[in-house]
Design a protein around this nucleic acid. Structure first.
Lengths: 151, 151
DNA sequence: TCCATGTCGATGCACTTGCATCTATATGGA
DNA sequence: TCCATATAGATGCAAGTGCATCGACATGGA
């Protein structure tokens, strides 16, 4: 039973959004692999931890920021730690928890990933649209967020 | 070494594109799971096969259309066949190949998935933007495709 | 005709993800 | 204080993915 039909314009925009995002991510991942660098998810986590500074972040704080499932963050952090890119510290006032902090090697890795990632963004996004268009795109996408941004 | 830096506007648009597409896909997949329906990739393949009609499609034709890797299509078709949603036929003039055709059950499954998927598109995309905005979004996204659409 | 090369599709293996659940600690109310 | 419930994070197992490679057949040139 069809509960609610989308307009053709909505279907067209949806299809392009899905396809374009997949294409762009795939191209970026390919560029990272070509540079023997880890995947985008590693960048996201390292980026958040770098922003957080010396205080680090609790894993559950990371989860909201990077849109990854809890078990994914848990395992990703284990890999990052194994590679010496982050360190886990016990947290004083909560015996269940830990604080994750980026290491010097982690900051370095973040920079190396960004040198490829940033270039991909510049080529795949920046070079294709004018700054007015980039702004318009960001605004439209903001309206699709849950909850939407009304700016 | 940083080879090329993206503009802040490009980074902002990129970030929103990645996050929004992930959110929308996740919400849609959740809705499908809630309805005990298979994932979106199944819909894509069933949709293409339904469009192709009685003649069916060769797996390699499917690969271009659905943006999946060859081994993924191979395995997905095996699952679809196991569920009786598609059938594989030997093709006369190429002994390596096969033709894949959607079955009646497959068409039925496609409709059932669409009843949830279409509703998700309507709510997550159609309800958030006006038709002018949907068109603008589709145009901007078209410019990001590789190769870009200049319409 | 023969063979080198290319294309179609499948698959073994390692790794990642999803799901459910587990352990450990925290919290709040009786 | 004790216990029920909630939260932080890890993990066993099944399923899916990525990579490399394989076998089968096709194609074109010598």
């Amino acid at each position: 039973m069809m509960r609610k039909s989308p307009s053709p314009a909505a279907v067209e925009a949806w299809g392009r959004l899905i396809r374009v995002s997949r294409q762009l991510i795939e191209k970026t991942e390919d560029a990272l692999k070509a540079g023997k660098l880890p995947p985008l998810a590693w960048y996201d986590v390292l980026h958040e931890l770098a922003e957080a500074g010396e205080g680090g972040l609790r894993p559950f704080e990371l989860i909201d920021r990077v849109l990854l499932a809890q078990y994914n963050v848990s395992r990703l952090l284990a890999r990052l730690e194994a590679d010496g890119l982050v360190e886990r510290l016990a947290v004083a006032d909560d015996g269940r928890g830990q604080t994750v902090r980026i290491t010097a090697d982690g900051r370095d890795m973040r920079r190396r990933i960004w040198s490829v990632y940033g270039k991909a963004i510049a080529e795949l996004m920046g070079d294709q649209l004018s700054s007015k268009e980039l702004e318009a795109l960001a605004t439209l996408l903001g309206r699709l967020r849950q909850p939407p941004i009304t700016q």
